[in-house]
Nucleic acid binder design. Structure first.
Lengths: 334, 334
DNA sequence: CGTCAAGAGGCAATCGTTTACCTTCAGGAT
DNA sequence: ATCCTGAAGGTAAACGATTGCCTCTTGACG
């Protein structure tokens, strides 16, 4: 099955390849008669064009690469959906990759995206420092914006949520509910938002006079399993504090599950909060109080920042921190 | 920021571009000294190669495109993860697109994948008939395998689960629990698995003497919202049957939520089942009895089928239906 | 010492578009 | 009648890698 090329179309329409190209892309005006002729020839042959050749010549692909730590995490898939939507508005496609939380794999994917000549990259880097060299290198080659998480020491735009403000909301809400001690369950401190959330937790706990007992800061990974494990540990050994603050919803869902399994009542015996407001946080038992992330805005802003760079006005790089909101549900008392 | 090309490397290493290409790709042997020299030059210049140019010349991209109806649905993201993993084993990358359940967008994405010269396509088509022309056209150009859903009248491999067997499991389980009447909540009958699941539901309900009252087959879409809406409708008007069988887990989660909101006890007043066994089906209140799909095997088989075609043995096309299993949880009585 | 083979590396064509630059032609201004 | 202008379309040079084919060198063998 030999592919049909522009040359075949040109031959059949009795014009040059240049004219075919112009007639089909509209890059330069072509007389209506010829355009019609070319169009018919193309249709008859089922001409589809070779995007690779076109990309090589124009040195642009109208494609943006996106690299996230996990596509199993609904927070990221939500973000991806919105980014894809926003890109579609401006006539670009999304090339999605997952780094599976592995800096090595992430570096490889980044190289691959650069080699594939995507026009720009949207990335939520895996690791605060291990990711730096690869991100740095990619950012030097093409427009790059970081979302949600960021690595230090790379000169690029960033767009995400104000983690300190988010934990202010959470802790203030908990304090109002009478919480005097709290635990924090998160992933290893390997990236920016994780660090900022812990810092925010400590700062606002101190401010509001909420105790954080020894051994009540648990670091694992962003997953349901880790939430389950961490909560089971707390229940078995340390004794539960008044509240368990989780760094994302998956962890919180795991915590809820472990509480249910151990016969610990939420919110009766302990309050639980999450972060992200993924769709499933409204469906758990009990529904989860969580920090809502404005995904659509994050996505729109990411695309806007990228387009700005693509239109290459050499502007200074922005760091945009959006204000989060708190979605209060039954897990903190209802 | 002028990109560094193979010519730059050749110049610096004092060899021809041919040698650089061979040294770096290993396509033909090169003396150790020269290889070393080239490698150093490439490193020093930060040479990354141009995948587009390479793809044009070799007319392959080592990339497989995957097109799913939704990336917000955990069933598909699970599948995607496994496919990506399986592809990685054989040194290929995944280019992921979402058709957002829109045949129009799906056709566009397919064209775009073909234009981008992916080496093959894994697709779960949106619509049983509307998707046909586009899928047909793509399948004519390059290797294509369908997963989960399929369109009729296209000559390609398919791999998925045996929907009839799945509903046999569900209905038999329900009948054993004493269910004498059941409702079925699904999406519009616009694709193969949806149709097969409904057919299976009816067939096994009849076989087991389970009644399906008038108005107890509800067709909407695969989403939590629709499940909620459908269940609310049933509760408000028709009166609940003994069981509500759902065509996927998202719908079932919505049904559970609506039941909880209306004070209907599950499994006390009604039994509920799902389909897919997404991670969140274990976390709902109550946890969901559901059909487990062997995603890893589906993915592995899809990649295997694709590789077989890529290695172009012109084999007849396969239709592989894997046997599902039933994961029993509290929503059907514990 | 002559012949031959094999290994290493270079030359240049090629992949399929796009586009800078040129030619041609028609029509309007002078 | 001459010149100019602009539109339409053609020619051919890129884009950056890969690779078929050729040359050159070196060493083994008779």
């Amino acid at each position: 099955m030999q592919r049909v090329t522009i040359r075949d179309v040109a031959e059949r329409a009795q014009v040059s390849t240049a004219t075919v190209s112009r007639a089909l892309s509209g890059a330069k005006p072509v007389s209506p008669a010829v355009r019609e002729q070319v169009q018919r020839a193309a249709d008859e042959l089922g001409y589809a064009g070779n995007g690779i050749a076109s990309a090589l010549r124009r040195s642009r692909t109208d494609t943006v690469g996106m690299l996230v730590p996990s596509i199993a995490n609904p927070f990221f898939t939500g973000l991806v959906e919105h980014v894809e939507h926003a890109l579609q508005q401006v006539g670009r496609q999304l090339f999605l990759c997952s780094s599976r939380s592995d800096p090595e794999l992430e570096a490889q994917r980044l190289r691959s995206l650069v080699a594939r000549q995507v026009d720009g990259i949207v990335i939520s880097p895996v690791h605060g420092s291990l990711s730096t060299p690869a991100v740095q290198r990619a950012a030097a080659e093409l427009p790059l914006v970081q979302v949600d998480r960021y690595v230090t020491g790379v000169d690029s735009d960033w767009i995400g949520v104000d983690d300190d403000a988010a934990l202010d909301l959470v802790m203030t809400h908990l304090a109002e509910r009478g919480v005097r001690s709290a635990a924090f369950v998160s992933s290893q401190l390997t990236n920016s938002s994780t660090e900022l959330r812990l810092a925010g937790f400590r700062r606002h706990a101190a401010r509001l006079d909420v105790a954080v007992p020894e051994g009540h800061v648990l670091l694992g990974e962003y997953s349901i399993e880790w939430g389950r494990e961490a909560a089971a540990g707390l229940i078995a050994t340390a004794g539960l504090p008044d509240a368990v603050v989780c760094a994302d919803d998956l962890i919180a869902l795991g915590v809820l599950q472990a509480c249910a399994a151990a016969g610990v009542a939420v919110p009766g015996d302990v309050l639980v909060t999450g972060f992200d407001d993924i769709p499933y946080s409204a469906l758990s038992a009990p529904p989860l109080t969580t920090v809502h992330q404005p995904q659509a805005e994050i996505a729109a802003e990411a695309v806007r920042l990228l387009s700005r760079v693509l239109g290459d006005e050499p502007t200074a790089h922005d760091r945009v921190a959006l204000r989060p909101t708190l979605t209060v549900r039954a897990s903190t008392g209802g």
